[in-house]
Simulated assay, not measured.
Amino acid sequence: MFNKYYGPSKDWAVIICLVGQGQEINKGEAGINEWFKALHNKFQNWNIYSSKKSLDINNQFEDLTITDNDKLFLYSTIRSLDAPNLPNFIEYLLNNDKDKAIDMLKEFNDEYPLYITRNLNTAKKWIKQETTEEADTIRYGLLAQSNGLRLIPEGIFVKNNINQEAWFLNETEDVRSSNHLEIPATEFDIQGLEIDYAIMAWDANLRYINGKFEYYKFKGTKWNHIKDTNEIERNYLINSYRVLLTRARRGMVIFVPEGDDEDATRPSEYYDGTYEYLKSIGITELN
Rank of each mutant, 00 (worst) to 15 (best):
T221W: 10
T221M: 10
K222P: 03
K222M: 15
K222G: 10
K222T: 15
W223R: 08
N224G: 06
N224W: 10
N224M: 11
N224D: 14
H225D: 11
H225E: 12
I226T: 09
I226G: 06
K227D: 09
K227W: 04
K227I: 05
K227Y: 05
D228F: 09
D228N: 15
D228R: 10
D228A: 14
T229C: 06
T229F: 07
N230G: 00
N230C: 00
E231R: 02
E233H: 07
E233C: 04
R234A: 09
R234H: 09
R234M: 08
R234P: 09
N235I: 01
I238P: 01
N239T: 02
S240T: 03
Y241H: 12
Y241S: 02
R242M: 04
R242S: 03
V243E: 01
L244H: 03
L245I: 09
T246A: 06
T246M: 07
R247A: 05
R247D: 04
A248C: 06
R250Q: 09
R250N: 06
R250F: 05
R250E: 07
G251F: 02
G251V: 01
G251N: 00
M252W: 01
V253P: 04
I254C: 04
F255Q: 00
F255M: 05
V256P: 06
V256M: 07
V256C: 06
V256D: 04
P257W: 07
E258N: 09
E258H: 03
G259P: 08
D260L: 07
D260C: 10
D260R: 11
D260H: 11
D261Y: 09
D261L: 08
D261V: 09
D261G: 08
D261C: 08
E262K: 15
D263F: 12
D263E: 14
A264K: 13
A264P: 11
T265E: 13
T265G: 09
T265A: 14
P267K: 12
S268T: 13
S268Y: 03
Y270K: 15
Y270E: 12
Y270T: 11
Y271T: 14
